[in-house]
Amino acid sequence: MNNIYRPIEATLEDVITESPNIKTFVLSLKEPFEFRTGQFIELTLPGIGEAPFTPSSDPNIKDKIDVTIMSVGKVTSILHNSHKGISLGVRGPYGKGYPLDKFEGKDILIVGGGVGLAPLRSLLFSLFAQIDKYNKVVLRYGARTGGDIIYKDAIAQWGKKKKVDVVTTVDVGDPQWKGNVGLVTTILKDLPVDLKKAVAIVCGPPIMMKFVTLKLLDLGFKPPDIYLSMEKNMSCGLGKCGHCRLGSYYACKDGPVFTYEQVKDLHDIWD
């Protein structure tokens, strides 16, 4: 019998500091484990608690997964103080993930805010692995300050790739920062995408997703072409515990990625 609540044991192989409050945790799992980009896991500190995270690594890498985590509360702060070698529990993968087939032949606009770039990095790796299938990839990323930008070296590399266009911005400038200053919505002007064949994928804090969505609609994106990562309280990940209800969906099993078309008529989606 298969126990759906049983966590797989994982060893914490490495901890990479990305910003003052964001770290990437490299896990090796002791049982076979595969995920599709955009699916999430429940990561447990045994005896302490668990929380949902979306792997930020390339799904084609099978022996390790990365999760990039911002320290915001109980589980995440203890994780941030954890060291290599400890055992963690992993349940999942859960949810539907990104529908890559729907992106084929498209201009793919990816808009990230803060730690929201984590799941998007996994998506980018998946797109890059089969870049011939897509027309182009346009990344727009905003962080609070220059110091809060994660994956700095990778972002610089991505910008040099063929068919890839990258612009970053920060909310608050400082003397070291030489780039754009302003909310991520300010770098959504003059996008090098053809609206007739464009999709937009957005991940970030609810308030950021709200304003980005409004902006995208303004620019002429259609609700079925805007993909959003909906954050809800989650416990089981399996559509059983009831916590993540979003209208008549469960964010865990029907999402966590939804098109704006699916959720636009629901109440209070940005709360």
Binding site: T44, P46, G47, E50, C236, K240, C241, H243
Partner: peptide, 24 residues
């Protein structure tokens, strides 16, 4: 009503995953 919460239980050195009925 079926909502529940998965939580942790410590028994000496042993950890268990527990399920509790929850209320909205």
């Amino acid at each position: 009503c079926h909502c529940f919460l998965l939580a942790e239980k410590k028994e000496g050195n042993l950890n268990k995953k527990v399920r509790l009925w929850d209320s909205c």
